[in-house]
Design a protein around this nucleic acid. Structure first.
Length: 489
RNA sequence: GGGCCAUUAGCUCAGUUGGCAGAGCACCUGACUUUUAAUCAGGUUGUCGGAGGUUCGAAUCCUCCAUGGCUCACCA
């Protein structure tokens, strides 16, 4: 399993046993720091000639005979060390020369500026905190191999500072989302990750097994049904930020486990959810990035509210130039699809064909934030239907840069209707659609007790963060994306 | 799963029509007490992803395999 040791690794191990022979510590237990690199850099006037203690990783050493410069990197960035034999003594200086790039050290010294004006720390003493036994990737070109970057994310974080920044922003966005929702009276809850029935979305689940109960359980594909049970139970505003798992393809915008925020609000409808969505997202951009217009892959995206609102039928008419409002049979829908070059598979309904045309001809044109409203009932088994036009539901999805980032609806709260919708899904499942939903009597029972009118919203956190951090792949916003196991050759 | 591309030193990469396997960084030795991709002098580092084949001769051409990337299909 361990790859062969190369010469550099052998050298470092040699140094380690040398240290042990000399009874020098190579793996320390604790080091008390007073400052971080960025503080020293940013508060130079205040700290000039003051003593500071820092700890971090040696990223570069530039030796000039009896004095050396080194770059120490901690969580906040890099600071230059100035290590002079006169200041620390011959024996310690030699020890310092013997350190390797990547070693973790703790240093004490005074802050000063070099002749070139570089804020630095004149080291008066240092300790090796942890010996690094593997060489770091080359400093100038860095680490580019995506496979290694994702598999050994710690290396990516060490040598590519932007990566660290992306994940700091991710954390800030989620933190601010929580704060924003809590301020609006939403309660954060946790619902099961293991479900006896995989519900709340159309997707293929992962299956696992509980030994004591001797039963299969599904990793959840969505928390939706449990959250709605909480609305039945009387919580009026709840949200959950957590992982979903879908046993489907992987791509630049799909990872088998991904994070969503789902929220449910009693007495609200999908118009309220639209307002909440646009306000939340533009707030996050403004709060975390300081602007609500930002650049994504060279395109300016303007999150300023209100976002464009357009029904699916109107959007298809606008972008694909076919008017689905003029007919309502599957045959006519297939004809219309064919007229714009879309060929859906056989046996679909009016609504499914419309949805197909939308996905094929419209989605990727929705660059600026746009709400697509009124989804076909066949593809929306959990949404309330529109009274005046039961082909459609009070459901919208939000698109940015051609990608779905939110999905919401006025929740279906009629238990009999819900049961019929499930039955329809079961039929589709039996007809071979592995993604169709399963019957969930437990959920129907909950609805029978009465669920208030409810607006529900789901936001794909990873995709939102891709947009806000200008990341082109979902793997760039997930610390440890799902990977095939490393081969042993 | 299909298509395209890639795999050469620890890292980033060159390698011409098939003719002794290279550079920079890293590493080792030496010089250098304000450098910052430090500099200067010298040195070490390879199963050229693997297995076959063609050839006097293969990193280079052919076949198969492995791993990865991009892309299409499915999906959020």
């Amino acid at each position: 399993m361990l790859e062969d040791m190369n010469e550099l690794m052998l050298q470092r191990r040699e140094k380690l046993s040398q240290l042990r022979e000399e009874r020098k510590k190579a793996f320390a237990e604790k080091y008390e720091v007073t400052h971080h690199a960025a503080e020293v850099e940013n508060n130079f006037e205040e700290l000039e000639e003051k003593e500071v203690k820092l700890a971090g990783r040696l990223m570069a050493i530039r030796t000039h005979g009896k004095a050396s410069f080194a770059d120490l990197m901690d969580m906040t960035g890099k600071v230059q060390l100035y290590v002079k034999q006169n200041n620390i003594g011959e024996e310690r200086y030699e020890f310092f020369q013997d350190l390797d790039l990547g070693d973790l050290v703790g240093i004490t010294g005074t802050v000063f500026k070099t002749n070139r004006g570089q804020v630095s720390i004149r080291v008066s003493s240092f300790e090796l905190l942890t010996k690094s036994l593997r060489p770091l990737p080359e400093k100038f070109h860095g680490l580019k191999d995506k496979d290694i970057r994702y598999r050994q994310r710690y290396l990516d974080l060490i040598v590519n500072p932007d990566v660290k920044e992306t994940f700091v922003i991710r954390s800030k966005i989620i933190k601010e989302m929580r704060r924003y929702l809590e301020e609006k009276g939403f309660l954060e809850v946790e619902t099961p990750m293991m479900h006896p029935i995989a519900g709340g979305a159309t997707a293929r689940p992962f299956v696992t097994h509980h030994n004591t109960l001797d039963m299969d359980l599904y990793l959840r594909i969505a928390p939706e049904l449990y959250l709605k049970k909480l609305i039945v139970g009387g919580f009026e505003k709840v949200f959950e930020i957590n992982r979903n798992f879908r046993n489907e393809g992987m791509s630049y915008k799909h990872n088998p486990e991904f994070t969503t925020m789902e929220l449910y609000q009693a007495q609200a409808d999908y118009h309220d959810m639209m307002e909440l969505t646009e306000n939340l997202v533009s707030h996050l951009a403004a709060e975390v990035l300081g602007t609500d217009t930002l650049e994504y892959e060279g395109t300016e995206l303007d999150f300023t509210t209100p976002w464009t609102r357009i029904t699916m039928v109107e959007a298809v008419k606008k972008y694909a130039d076919v008017d689905f409002s003029e007919f309502d049979t599957a045959e006519e829908a297939y004809e219309a699809a064919a007229s714009v070059g879309v060929k859906p598979e056989e046996g679909l309904s009016y609504g499914e064909v419309l949805n197909e045309v939308f996905e094929e001809r419209v989605e990727d044109k929705l660059i600026q934030p746009t709400f697509i409203m009124d989804y076909p009932i066949e593809v929306s088994p959990l949404a309330q239907k529109i009274e005046d036009d039961p082909r459609f539901t009070y459901r919208f999805e939000a698109f940015v840069y051609g990608r779905e980032i939110a999905n919401a609806f006025s929740e279906l709260n009629d238990p009999e209707e819900q049961k019929r919708r499930f039955e329809k899904q079961v039929e589709m499942r039996e007809a071979g659609d592995e993604e169709a939903q399963m019957m969930d009597y437990d959920f129907i029972r909950a609805l029978e007790y009465g669920m208030p009118p409810t607006g529900g919203l789901g936001i794909g956190i990873d995709r939102l963060i891709m947009l806000l951090t200008d990341s082109s792949s979902i793997r760039d916003v997930i610390l440890f994306p799902t990977m095939r196991p490393e081969s042993n050759e």
